[in-house]
Write a protein that binds this DNA or RNA. Sequence first.
DNA 1: CCGACAAAAAATATCGATTATTTCGCCAAA
DNA 2: TTTGGCGAAATAATCGATATTTTTTGTCGG
Lengths: 226, 226
Amino acid sequence: MNIAEFDVVTTEGSATQRAYHLLRHMIVTGVLKPGEKLKIDGLRNRLETGASPIREALSLLTSDNLVERHDQRGFTAAAVSVDNFQEILVLRSSIEDLALRASIANATQDWEERIVLAHHRMLRAEGKETDMFEQFHKAFHMELLANAASPIMLKFCSQLYDLNIRYRYLAGSAMNYQRRDVRDEHNGILDAAVARDADTASERLLNHYKLTGAFLSGLLGNGALA
Amino acid sequence: MNIAEFDVVTTEGSATQRAYHLLRHMIVTGVLKPGEKLKIDGLRNRLETGASPIREALSLLTSDNLVERHDQRGFTAAAVSVDNFQEILVLRSSIEDLALRASIANATQDWEERIVLAHHRMLRAEGKETDMFEQFHKAFHMELLANAASPIMLKFCSQLYDLNIRYRYLAGSAMNYQRRDVRDEHNGILDAAVARDADTASERLLNHYKLTGAFLSGLLGNGALA
DNA sequence: CCGACAAAAAATATCGATTATTTCGCCAAA
DNA sequence: TTTGGCGAAATAATCGATATTTTTTGTCGG
């Protein structure tokens, strides 16, 4: 999987491919609301395609935990809850800790350059539209972990990232969370990774999550999910 | 997800459901070989159903890393390699370590009884046909982890379990691995879990994986994958 | 007024056929 | 011999229609 292409909405490829990316984007960004029934016919009209590609795309999305499949009762957008949010936060922290340490253990000059580049691209995307920034933000985080040479683990991390960012969109804070000292946090993580200091890098990464987690938890607790 | 129903091949439900369970079983047990092209028409005949359920089932299986989807070029059974096997082993050990410790941290009498029961059922299935034993073996391992109250993590573990057991079938040793001192190992894990001794339980669980891993690695290295 | 049952409506799931794409085999030219 | 196309065959993907299932609605009897 090409890191740079995570999550890009395309207009090429098969109808299934297009439907998959479009639906995923609509769910992650909250256009399709949690728990909402995803009726084949409705989506068929919206995406201007047949039932087969829609069903196939929805099946693919169930594996990402973004869609729930109820046999013979159709599909719904995955539910959300405070518990679910906490679970994602905790699990993500644990697994990314593993991944980052493994990544650093395998550090090479090549990887070093890739994370610096990903970081630079993210900086340049600041102030651009949210979707664009989010794309590079994810690319940076995934590139940090990619050197662990564990495709399955990377896929898990990617999934958890998407599940988490969905809550950010739901809380309507995808934009303004850019305000916090996130830039400094990213710098700190990058520096430690480049220095191949696994303990510091991991500590900063986890703190990064803990902070955004607490921030979001506050918003969500105030009924943003209700 | 009901632990006891992991992986059961049903004849009820929708055609998609049936196709999903059947195909999954065929891939895990090696009836469909790694890398094999999964032609829709061929499967259509074999499973006596239409193309739509097949495609949908295959889409669901891609999320389990058991099928690879190549846009406009169909599906293949997931490839295998020594690297992949090692990755699964390492990742599984790491994540199950987390899960087991969390499970024990949440220990209740109810959970205690569930794992004892699962263990008993596994013992009773010894000597029965492989598939039956495997079902209870998996149920026991999943039940150990289920008390972590982290559905996503449990799903990851379930996936990794299936990926791992696939190698066991490929090595043709699903049966005779029952001979090793696996029974003692399981007893040891159960005892430590019941005693709520996380360190010992985890150590024994990981050792259990390390041993089967080394055992299989030997077989696989000798060209069983070629 | 409420609950059970039946018919109607809506939605899902599936099929068979059609369309689009890739793959393969062949031949000609370099 | 290799390379580059050109069909033809094979396969994947998609569509439109039909069958199946679930959900809703309406009616009757208690």
